[in-house]
Simulated assay, not measured.
Amino acid sequence: MTRRDSLLAVLVAVLWGGNFVAIHLGLEGGDGEDFPPFLFLAIRFVLVALPLVFLVPRPKASWQAVVAVGAFMSLGQFGLLYLALATGMPAGLASLVLQAQVVLTIVIAAVALDERPSRRQAAGALVGTAGLVVVAVGFGAGASIVPLVVTVGAALSWAIGNVVARAAKVESGLSLVVWSALVVPLPCLAVSWVVDGPDVMVEAMAGFGWAALLSTLYTVVGASLVGYTIFNGLMAKHPASSVVPYILLVPPVGMLSAWLVLGEVPNVLEAVGALVMLVGVTVAVTSSRRPAVVAAPS
């Protein structure tokens, strides 16, 4: 990856790291009432898709690929993540556990796309995973098993979406984000209708306050339109094993923001684990010293 692409990958990690606190605050609402998670997710992706779907050309990929990306990377990942956060998963821990997708993506890409990671990338992913385990040990005492399992399911869904996006090789990351967002709202509204009921949905919309609004703006603009546009573009240009390790930076950012905003103070094990993860990222994304290959302008 070029230095520019590496910096863009770091920017994505920072945006996504702050996303967990934004979602947590939005789900809590500003009036002490919890916002229904699937209704909240539906609102987010309606705003991701509209009005841009009328302005951005359809991605140059099959409908099956676009629907699959929307189903796994958006609906599956965030549906399970919002559910986990709504049922007691701490925001900082969620930012950590979700990064199981790094190893899962590399493994699935190796099997499905025959993209074999280099020894250095594999070693970096293993070191980063070891850091995740250390943080999980430090954080796990206060975590319920059900939200934890749900978050791991979100990580698996994200990993499958990563590989589908890579296989599709869509040139415009923005088009894929916008058009795949159409997959999310209707299933989420249906789930909320069944689980929460129409009365709760109407009441939640009537009480849609500043916390929910600011959270939605951050998740729509920062995390989805900017973050996923950059990320999908990088995945189309580079092997998954080169891009995904950067996302190991998300947990330190998520834990720091949860500490500053929510008072989730990391203990010694969590801090050590975050440091180990940073070492893993460095190992995975820096190549051995050899002459650089300059790509021709496209």
Rank of each mutant, 00 (worst) to 15 (best):
A42V: 10
L96R: 02
P147T: 15
V202R: 14
I23S: 12
S224T: 07
L148K: 07
A71I: 11
Q64V: 14
V261F: 07
R3F: 15
V170F: 12
T129D: 08
L50A: 14
L213W: 02
V102I: 08
M1G: 12
N232A: 10
V67K: 00
A123G: 05
G88I: 00
V12E: 12
A9I: 13
V137M: 13
P291D: 09
S172N: 08
P36R: 04
S175M: 08
V48R: 02
L148E: 11
L213R: 09
F35P: 01
T219P: 00
G30R: 05
V69N: 06
P297L: 11
I230H: 06
F45R: 06
V272W: 04
V250D: 09
A110R: 11
G88P: 01
L104P: 00
L80D: 03
G88A: 00
T151P: 09
A91N: 00
R58V: 14
V133E: 04
G254H: 09
P59K: 14
A258F: 03
S242D: 13
A125G: 11
A110K: 11
H238D: 13
R166M: 05
L98Y: 08
T282D: 09
L174S: 05
F231K: 08
V250F: 12
A296D: 15
L189S: 00
A211G: 10
A13S: 10
P57Y: 10
F20K: 00
V111R: 05
V285K: 12
V283M: 10
G153A: 03
V261M: 02
A86I: 04
L186G: 05
A274N: 03
L81W: 00
V244D: 02
Q77D: 05
A274Y: 01
L83I: 03
L39T: 01
V221L: 08
D34I: 13
G142C: 08
A61E: 13
V146M: 09
T286S: 03
G124K: 05
M277W: 08
P185E: 03
A86P: 07
D196K: 01
M73C: 12
V250S: 09
W210N: 13
W259H: 14
I247N: 14
P90H: 06
C188K: 01
L11E: 12
G30N: 12
V183P: 02
A13I: 00
L213Y: 03
V194R: 11
L214S: 10
A91R: 02
R166H: 06
N162V: 01
T219M: 14
T129K: 07
G227V: 04
S74H: 15
V135D: 07
A112P: 01
H24V: 05
A91S: 09
L50E: 10
W259I: 14
D196N: 06
R166Q: 09
A292D: 15
V220S: 02
A154K: 11
V135W: 05
L39R: 00
L217Q: 15
